[in-house]
Amino acid sequence: MSDWIDVCATDDIEEEDVIRFDHGIRSFAIYHSPEGEFFATDGLCTHEQVHLADGLVMDHTIECPKHNGQFNYTTGKATRLPACDHLGTYPVRVAGGQVQIQLSE
C-alpha cells in the first residue's frame, strides 16, 4: 500500500533548489527543477550520510555539501565521485498547490 503525503506548498521551494523532508525515521530531499517540475530522492548522500538538502542544485544535479559527490536527482544516478551508489527516487505530484510524495508503507 502506498500513500501520497503532503511535503510543502509549491512555492516553498525555489526553482533550482532543494529542501529536506523528514517523515518518520526517513529523510528525503525534494527538488524543484529549473523547468518547474518536482522530484524526490533519499535525503542522505550514499557516500557518507550527509543531508543533501544543504547541497547545491545545478540544473538536474544535486551536489553533496560535504564531499562534492553529485547525483542526477531526476534518476538518482551517482554522477561524480566520491558518490558511487545511486539514490532512491520517489514519485512526486502537485495537488491543490501542495507538493506530495508517494511512499510505500
Binding site: 557516500h47 557518507e48 560535504k66 564531499h67 565521485l81 566520491p82
Partner: peptide
C-alpha cells in the same frame, strides 16, 4: 588522494 581527501573532510 581523491579518497584520502574525502576522508580528511569527513
Amino acid at each position: 588522494w581523491r579518497w584520502s581527501h574525502a576522508r580528511h573532510h569527513t
